[in-house]
Design a protein around this nucleic acid. Structure first.
Lengths: 216, 216
DNA sequence: TGTACATCAGTGAACGCGCGTTCACTGATGTAC
DNA sequence: TGTACATCAGTGAACGCGCGTTCACTGATGTAC
């Protein structure tokens, strides 16, 4: 009967190579995408042989899920710190919104390859419970940002500020994902659509604020 | 040396089974997704054996590309007819925009599985020339709709109506894709976000028109 | 502090599963006379 | 119109490639006395 869970690492050596394994997986995913992330390649990058992977993880899927959850968890914490910071004190909604959008775009641009690979992994994943966990983490991240923006609800003329903020944030997230993370790369699109990226950076805040009905 | 191109069908029987093959591929893609679309399954659905596929197509990739191009071509023609229809005569921009958005959403909802599968296929495709052809077809479809909306440019207060229309349409397309086509299915998301679909239908036109600066 | 033993960590060649692809063959269709 | 022959259409079992996974083995680390 195959082992179901990831084994704990008893020795220091093992803990180190587990760390290297996770790091290597992230790097390979970012560089070679989900289809280029084979066990031999990941193991080699971590300075291990393929067999060694199976000492820590019951199968490839468990390694990938671990990486997925770590990345999303880290992103969640990062966002939580960001919205808590008192940099936002006294700043009016347009300025906060602009910063939030700019940071969202920056994050998606920086981690394009990794995010793309993880999305593909989740989208093709058969285990509904795992997918739900990922969705929930993304949702919580989302909600934290929405809550920050909602503290300026008096500046919003849209009849339903709560749902409008959520909807506008959804659009920002989906746009960042659609334009910056998913294929085709903006550079390949530039023949048909020069500077989508710059337009996104400029027009997304405008759309956001106009939709909410904020005086600029 | 393997054959490079798809052979013509000399007999009526062959032409029929080619049609069945394309139809079967579309159905299997829509139902089972890209990873469920195996040659044996497609062939069986078309009432053929796996080997028969290779009489018309040099490999699986050629069959898939053919299907891709046919679907996008058909969508392009469909859109071209739609915008040309004089149903739009004398209708003000808000009404046209609402119809266009509603039709876009409807199309994405109806063909969710197929569109998802084709997107995954294109996104993973190594041949840049093929990907470019698909992008161009989508772009032309896009442009036709933008042109229709641009005939009402006097109603648009945004300083750059042309690029604003293109950007707003891009957002509509990406939103439809992100919410309706890509995982998770709206029904699975309903726990976290009840009625995204209805909200999309209601709020997308509002966002569209407010961004362009149209008097409602 | 040393030593013997148990357990853990890692190796890498070999295995096997799934699916695309081939190929020797049968049957169907078209064509020349 | 009938017949012989060439070509096309299709079959389905077998093949093979790639990648995840295993397993017999070596080496490293920790532990009991």
């Amino acid at each position: 009967m195959p082992r179901k869970t990831t084994l704990p690492a008893h020795q220091a050596r093992s803990r180190e190579s587990l760390t290297r394994l996770v790091k290597a997986t992230i790097e390979v995913l970012d560089k070679d995408g989900i289809e280029g992330a084979t066990i031999p390649r990941i193991a080699a990058r971590a300075g291990l042989s393929p067999g060694a992977v199976y000492r820590r993880f019951p199968d490839k899927d468990a390694l990938m899920r671990e990486v997925c959850l770590r990345v999303f968890e880290s992103n969640y914490k990062h966002t939580k710190e960001l919205v808590a910071v008192d940099r936002w004190k006294d700043k009016p909604l347009p300025e906060v919104a602009r910063s939030v959008i700019a940071l969202t775009l920056k994050g998606h641009r920086q981690h394009r390859g990794l995010l793309r690979a993880l999305l593909f992994f989740i989208w093709q994943h058969p285990d509904a419970a795992f997918v739900r966990r990922c969705d929930e983490m993304e949702w919580k991240t989302f909600q934290d940002v929405a809550d920050l923006l909602l503290t300026r609800r008096s500046e919003i003329r849209h009849p339903h500020p709560e749902s409008a903020i959520r909807f506008a944030m959804l659009m920002v997230g989906i746009a960042a994902q659609g334009v910056l993370v998913l294929p085709p790369d903006p550079k390949d699109l530039s023949r048909l659509w020069p500077d989508v990226d710059a337009q996104l950076e400029r027009e997304l805040p405008r759309m956001f604020l106009r939709y909410l009905g904020v005086k600029e």
